[in-house]
Amino acid sequence: MALNSIYGEILNEHNLRPVHKGRIENPSLVLDGKNPSCGDEITIELRVNDEDVIEDGCFTGSGCAISQASVDMMLDLIIGEKRERALKLYEIFMGMIRGEAGEEETEELDEAMVFKDISHMPARVKCAVLGWRTMREMLDGRLSVE
């Protein structure tokens, strides 16, 4: 069934062996993201420098394979990028899930393109976007560490 095509090597790799799970030193932004209906809870830490470049990032917390892999892939994409670029990628990712993003644009998401068909699993959309929503809030809201 098309539904299960989401679960593949790329997703499993990011779920079982996430690259960015852990802590970073001196984060400038920290935010919890939560999906109340499923109990998924993650915390994202980012270090954004004076030039608005995301120098490093990581996540902790627990959740399903889709939420965990999605946030790991997202961090792959945004680390080293400028804030505006990360927010642009957010727009593309959301557009892809709504089926509104063009093919060329979507390719900018690299591995995160595996979530293209998540719209066929409406119950799981919120899992795939948890990390992205949290990141957008961090960068938009300019939250800072206490």
Partner: peptide
């Protein structure tokens, strides 16, 4: 994760709750 259990089972038409 239980949500993955439920989603994968759904692929075989098996309906169980997760959460």
């Amino acid at each position: 994760h239980p949500h993955d259990i439920s989603s994968i089972l759904d692929g075989s038409g098996i309906n169980v709750r997760a959460g």
